[in-house]
Each structure stands twice: as structure tokens, then as C-alpha cells.
Design a protein around this nucleic acid. Structure first.
Lengths: 219, 219, 219, 219
DNA sequence: AATGAATGAGTCTTCATTCAT
DNA sequence: AATGAATGAAGACTCATTCAT
């Protein structure tokens, strides 16, 4: 699920372009049909390679799926890091991150679908590496949150772990729901995304009352 | 996903007890292995009937799955209706409903799993009847929300549709996340559920500042 | 390899006739093409059943092969027991057994082939049950041999184990060779079989005679 | 199986050392896994060359196997010729040859395995060249046997063809059996080899009673 | 000449569904 | 009505062989 933020690539393959082509095809096809209903041959066809090549690069259908998961995660993480760059206050970093997250899920429904498939088909079989990565990214945001609490930006009585989990769940869960009930066109309206982020960031009551009021008084 | 609230049973079968046995078995096995990896024979075994009987009662693996979805939905809906009964204010109705929802998902991880499987495997193939039921339940809560806005209990500037969708997504998404990262024992701690509901109901900023303040001053 | 003599059947299956049909087909096809080059579909076709049925009865291609091995072994063992029945002296029992063994291998080249395939493809992976059966039959003949030595029918200085192994190897090895170089018609000539048995039984010097006695008197 | 004794090399290849490396690797791997289960890539790896090179030198997996067979045959034949050199009587030649044969099979289980694999996988598809070579070697020993019969060393009533075939079968069959049931350490005990050869040479009753006696009197 | 990446034909195996008993 | 044996379509995966570099 949408919970991996840092990840560094290390697998070496003969032809990086071909690897990416297969991965892109895999993401598309897995997202379209779901893991189980996907025929590896279809991925091979879409990638313009032989079936054997898919297996040469990824070993098995399952491993290919995990690679797709990783790829999506990496893309997401890059985006989030970029998005957070300009943030001056911690709140701003969170807001920018959340907005980027929402935008990512909404504009890449196939990437979102990969996360959903992973949860549905592999639940408790997440490889240690993936799980570790998630841990790291979780820690990163938790420590950010703590700094916000210490600096007085956020309520000091928050439980950082639970809050971050809720934070992630809120965005991911809401967006999943949203993706399911709205058309792609509707989803892409900036307004809806904004509203969701607003729900999450402001709604989650991260900040002191005074700050809330100030923010409101700006309107 | 957790979005069907009303549903009335009409299918007639020779032996209701046997039907229920199969359905219970189906829910358990689908939840345990996921839809694709489930072998109908296993369901038949667990239900103590022949494989042919499963097909006599439900026609196909897919139809059996939809029946399981429906069953879970009905159970959820009954629970939510019961839970809401004592609510005096609209807010209370929402809170009680949300708490019951959270408790249901947390104490019946297999029921939650059914929703997840449905989303993952059948995405856009939801039968019209199911979709309609969801519509109805959505409308029910939307109209409740509108009444709350009109009566001044809630902020008057909310968009009822989006808010309700967010509301559902928040609970469902957060709980899914929570179910994935916590152990069953941890999940069942009332405190965690309460916290999540709190995030959702209060955090979603359903009410005016005054109400928030009052509620806080109670502590 | 031609080394299992006792075996009692216990597997229960719905339709014994069908089981036998598949087994017969399997023996024929495995013998014709060898284990690796055999397509299970061909066995199913020859047995007049669906491929799935083959798997229902035998689980896997490999298990089917072991079942075929067992079947051939059982048939051989029955034959040898019958053949030995009329024997009055131990020598006669051995001779009758050896003749029956030779006749079996020669008249059932496909059964012989099964033994050869087993040796070639599964060498050291013989299931414990099969190995145990071989042990038992080996013991049976070894004790027979010992009785012959004690009663004075055979040279008393033989090493029973080695002799029995050589005995089996001689017949099996020679027959294999023979089956390879002669046509089926030639092989079936009683004379050739007789000659081989003669080589083996007399040649292995199992019995006393003038020459042997002299040899002994030297010691 | 073990039936080619003369063979002259004629294939020309660019790099003889590389050819031999591949051949050695092939013998080892074919013997270890069997023909069907052998992956050509593994042979290439063990030989330290690319897979393409294997195909450049040997054309196909099957052809490589035949080349391995040939190589093993040549090595065996050389050994047998050397071993026979010192023999003064025909009997001695046979005995020395048989002993060398036994020693070869016992000390080179992988070479033996090649013969077994050939028999199991290619039965009746032996290339004409190989078959011819076998014919030649068979003739060689048959004519030797005839000379022994004419010179009075052996019984004059033997059928040379059958006897030679039995002779080969006896050694090969017994040794195969022996290799299967004994450990390598046990097999290498000179005593066991001697016993087998004894069974074969003396047991096969190749000679007149008088000759046996003479032989003994020498000791 | 040597290589090893790419290929796809070939097979095992599973399991939803049917249907005779 | 209930059963479970039979079926065969579907799909993952392997590996001999080819061929561009």
C-alpha cells in the first residue's frame, strides 16, 4: 500500500530500457486486470518482447509484480520529495507532500491499483526489503511530525506513530474511495484533491486552535 | 468496499441453513486466501457439503463471491442501524455509526477482507443491484448530513456528497491501513478505534468551532 | 531396476478399472518414449480419459511413474512366486525363478524399459517404500540361498549377499543387453533364454561338481 | 552400452583444448543430472565458455551427448587395449580385459552413467557410426574367442556371438547393479571387482575343465 | 570466433464447471 | 436434491536454439 517513500535501485540488468518497458507494461496490465487474471504473455506482448525475456528479467510473475510495486513506490517517493522541497514550515511540507500524494494517486490510477492489488493478493507476504523501506519512510515523516510538535507548530499531545498511520490511511483510503466513485475527469479536478487534502491535514487537527483560527481568518 | 448499507434478501433456496453454511465458509475462505487463490472445493469441505451443492446454490464461483459480499454488507448494515438507534443529535448518530463501523471492520477482519477483495478483483464489474444498494445507503447518510447542516449542527459550507465520500473513505482507508500494520490484539483495543473515529469525526471538521471548543472543554 | 519382488497394494481409488487403464497406458508410453519425453496427455489419450483424470488418480507425472514401477514390480513378483512353486530342491527354485525372470523381461520389453527408465532418471531418488520392498525380496532370496548352502546343495563358501546381487545383476544386465541387440522374435526363442539362465545359474557356480570339489580340496 | 571398443577421431575443430573442456563438462553434468534434466547452460558454465560456443562446437544438445558417449567409449577402448597387452594366452587377454572393464566402470561412475543414459534416452536411435563401431569391437572379441576355441583353450561348443554378448552383458549388468547398491568406497575395493570378474569369466564357463585345472596348477 | 541475450514452442499442472449416478 | 468424479481450457515456466554484436 501507499507506504514506501525511500528506495534505492540496485538490480543490474543487461538492458535498462527493456527492463523499464517490461515494467511499464506490467504496471499497466496488472492494474487493468489484477494480478491473478493477468497473463504474463500479455505483458510480454505489450512490452514488445518474448515471454522468455520477461522471465529472464524478473524471474517469476510474482517477482515481476513486486518489481512493479517497487517501481511505483520509487516514482511516488521521488515525486513526494520534489514536492516537499519548497516547504518553509513543517505544516507546509506536510501539505505539499499530501497534495502531491493525492495528485499522484489521482493522476496515476494504474499506480494506485498496483498498491491495491498488492494488499489484496499478498497481504502478509510483503518481502522484508519492501517492509523495511516502508519503515524508513514512516520514520522520516514521524520525525518530521515530532519536530513540528516540539516547535509548537502542532498540538503537543499527538501520538506521532498513530497520527502518521492515520495520516497515510486517510489520504490513501479516501483517494481509493474517490477513485472508485468518480470518473477520471472528475478526479483530476484540482478542487476535489484540494478538498481531500484539506480534510486530511486540517481535519486531522494537527495544529493548535490558534493556528486554525489564523488560517481561517486569512480567508 | 464498505459502501452498501441497505439490502433486502429475495433469493429462494431449498435449505436456508445449508445456504448459510456455504456462505459462512465462503466468507472465511475468500478472506483467508483471496478470491483467485480460493478453491471452491475448500469452501465445500468447510461447509460440509459436496462441491456440486455449492454450484447448485450459487451458480458460479463469482456469484458465490457476490453473495458473500452481499451477506457481509447486510450484516454490517444491520449493525450500523442498531448502533445508530440511541443517537439523539445527528452528530451522535454519526459518531455511533462510525464507531460501530470501526468496530465491525476491526473485529471482523475477514469481513473487511471481503470488501478489499471485491475492490481488487472486480473493481468496475459491480452488479447493478449492489451498486444501487450502495447508492441508497449513500443517499441515506447524505440526507442525514444535510439535516445536520440545516439544523446548524454542522458547518453549512460542506459539500454533502464529497464529505460523505470522504467520511466513508476515511474510516475504511484508515482501518484497512490499521489492520495491516497492527496485530489483531492491538486492533481490538478500544482506544485505537476511538482514536480513529475521533480523527475522522472531529478531524473531518464536521462541526462549527464553537462545538469543538465545547467538546474540548469537557475534558 | 529388476529388484523389487514383494509389494502389497493399498491405494484406494474410485474406479479400479480406470486406474489400471491409466497405469497400462503409462507403462506403454513411458517405455516407448522414456520418462522425460513422455507427454502426460498422450497417456491420457491412450487410456481414454481426460488429462485431469490422470492427475486425480496419480497426483503428478513423477508419482504416476513410480506407480508404474510398482505395478511392474508386482506383476513380476507374482510371476516369480508362481514359477517357483513346483521347485523341489533349492536349485530348482532358483532355476525356475531365473527362467521366469528371463521370460518376463524378454516377453515384456516395455516392463523392462520401465526399470531402465527408473534407473536412468531417478537413480538415487527411489522412495523409501520401494527401497524397502527391494530389501525384503533380496532377503528372501538370500535366506533361500543360505538354506541351500547349509543343506549342502551349494558351495558353502559363497557370500550370500554378493552372490545374490551378482545373480540379479547377471540376469538383468544380460537380458537388457540381449533385448537391445536382438529382435523381439529372436529374444522370444526359448533357446536363448535357456542359454542365459544356464550361464547364470551354472556359471555362477552355485553347485558342487567334480571340478569345484577339487578346487576346494586344495584349500 | 559399454560396447564400443575401436574408434578413430576425425572431427576437426578450431580449439582442441576448448573442445575437450566442453566434453569433460558434458560428461560430468550428463552423468550427474541425466540427459533430459541437463541444462546446456550448466555445461557451458562448467566448461568456462559461452553457451553459443557449445553449440558452435557440437551443434545440438543431442549431438553433444553423442560426442560424450563417443569420448567415453574411446577412453574405455584405450584402457582395454592397454590392459590386454601383456596377455599371453587368450584366456589371459579376456581376464585382463574384463578386469580393466570392471575397474573402469567402478572408478568412473560418471562414465558408466553416460552409457546408462544413452540406453535409456536413445535406445534405438544410436547413430550408424556408433553402431558400426560397436560391431567392429564385437567382431574383434568374437574372433579372439574363436581363436581360443580353435586352439583348444575354450570349449569348442560355444556359440561365439551369444557368448560374447553374454560376456559383455554379464560384466556391464552386474557392475551397474553393483554401482547402484554399493557405495563408491565399497565398489572400489579390488576384492569386489575381482569377485565379479570371477563370476563372469569362470562362471560363464568359457573354458574346458582341463584348462581350469591348468590355470589353477600355475598358482 | 565467441558470446549471451532473446525467443517461443512445449509441458506440467490447476481448478471451475459439468453431469451421470 | 446431492454428490464428487471427470474434464479440458488456461496459464506459469523452462530451456534448446538462434543470431546480432
Amino acid at each position: 500500500m501507499g507506504w514506501v517513500f525511500f528506495m534505492n535501485e540496485s538490480i543490474v540488468v543487461p538492458d535498462q530500457a527493456k527492463r523499464t518497458a517490461i515494467l511499464d507494461a506490467a504496471i499497466g496490465v496488472f492494474a487493468l486486470h489484477g494480478f491473478s487474471k493477468t497473463d504474463v504473455q500479455v505483458i510480454a506482448n505489450r512490452a514488445g518482447v518474448g515471454k522468455g525475456t520477461v522471465y529472464r528479467y524478473f524471474g517469476s510473475k510474482t517477482d515481476l509484480f513486486w518489481a512493479a510495486t517497487l517501481e511505483v513506490t520509487i516514482r511516488l517517493q521521488k515525486l513526494l520529495n520534489q514536492a516537499a522541497e519548497g516547504g518553509e514550515t513543517i505544516l507546509e511540507v506536510f501539505q505539499k507532500t499530501a497534495r502531491a500524494y493525492a495528485r499522484f494517486l489521482v493522476t496515476h490510477p494504474d499506480h494506485l491499483e498496483i498498491f491495491i492489488q498488492q494488499r489484496a493478493e499478498f497481504y502478509d507476504q510483503v518481502p522484508e526489503t519492501h517492509r523495511l523501506q516502508h519503515e524508513l519512510s514512516h520514520e522520516k515523516y514521524v520525525s518530521l511530525l515530532k519536530r513540528g510538535m516540539e516547535s509548537g507548530e502542532f498540538r503537543p499531545d499527538l501520538d506521532p506513530d498513530t497520527t502518521m498511520m492515520a495520516f497515510g490511511g486517510l489520504i490513501f483510503g479516501t483517494l481509493s474511495h474517490c477513485c472508485f466513485h468518480f470518473t477520471q475527469a472528475q478526479r483530476e479536478q484540482a478542487e476535489i484533491q484540494e478538498q481531500i487534502v484539506d480534510h486530511v491535514v486540517r481535519g486531522a487537527n494537527l495544529f493548535l486552535d490558534g493556528i486554525v483560527r489564523k488560517e481561517k481568518s486569512k480567508e
